[in-house]
């Protein structure tokens, strides 16, 4: 059984068929990439999996469980974490607090205990901090721990978002263009981190990325989409060599259809 199974997924916004019959499955421990030209529907697939959008058609199964009917806030608890293409951090909080917000699914105290700051609250806070410090160490964010997000460079913010997703302690992580806007060195860091996530943390990675160098370096399989429809599935080399994929990137409409 695959960890994530997407079956005949579709979502239509009025007349726009943003995703139109996409099926794929991601195996446990795999790095799976989705590529495609702008507006192909890649981010929309992520939004469907994280239940921000309601599919018009199709099912999504995670670890054998149908999650198509779940609420967006139920997804993290199952062990699915994500980042956003346009960075959605909590701008007025510190890096540490942003990462601690990623521990929300692990909280066991309620607001009354929190207000009274009972010993159980402090015990839990220590545990959350231990987890978060591991993430900070992993992503080398020590220098930014106490800094507020606003004012931090773009590249650092992208890494913090990955950190916040990792703080959840997920089984599956969805990365929406983790390398966009990053320098060559920063992109290389991302590549190493993705490999470490898979090898050391046992994570499954589903990523959307335009940087074919990064995709070829880290991913086991690649799915190419265009106009909401799947074009090709295979290794990075196979997909890049695909006639339909090349046509889609060159913008020939009949080949993409």
């Amino acid at each position: 059984m695959s960890l994530l199974e997407v079956d005949d997924l579709a979502v239509h916004f009025g007349g726009v068929k943003a995703v139109d019959g996409v099926s794929f499955s991601v195996e446990e421990g795999e790095v799976f990439a989705i590529i495609g030209p702008n507006g192909a529907g890649k981010s929309t697939i992520f939004n469907l999996i994280s239940r921000i959008y309601q599919p018009t058609h199709g099912t999504i199964r995670f670890d054998g469980q149908d999650i198509t009917a779940l609420k967006a806030h139920d997804i993290a608890r199952l062990g699915i974490a994500r980042t956003f293409q346009n960075i959605e951090l909590f701008d007025h909080s510190t890096v540490l607090d942003n990462l601690l917000m990623g521990r929300h699914t692990h909280r066991a105290t309620n607001f009354v205990q929190d207000i009274l700051h009972l010993p159980s609250v402090r015990r839990e806070e220590r545990a959350h901090r231990r987890h978060v410090e591991e993430v900070i160490e992993f992503l080398e964010l020590e220098a930014y721990r106490e800094k507020r997000i606003e004012g931090l460079p773009y590249g650092v913010r992208k890494v913090i978002e990955i950190g916040r997703a990792l703080a959840i302690g997920p089984r599956l992580i969805l990365l929406d263009e983790p390398a966009s806007g990053l320098s060559v060195e920063e992109t290389q860091d991302v590549a190493f981190w993705i490999e470490d996530m898979r090898r050391d943390m046992g994570l499954t990675v589903l990523m959307v990325e335009h940087d074919m160098g990064l995709v070829a370096q880290v991913s086991d399989r690649v799915l190419a989409v265009a106009n909401g429809r799947p074009l090709a599935l295979g290794t990075a080399a196979e997909v890049q060599a695909d006639r339909h994929v090349q046509a889609a990137y060159l913008g020939s409409p009949e080949a993409a259809a």
Binding site: H73, I75, D91, S93
Partner: peptide
């Protein structure tokens, strides 16, 4: 604070 600064992020964190 999470809800104040980004609802969509807050949801995705559970």
């Amino acid at each position: 604070l999470a809800v104040r600064d980004s609802e969509v992020s807050a949801r995705s964190l559970g």
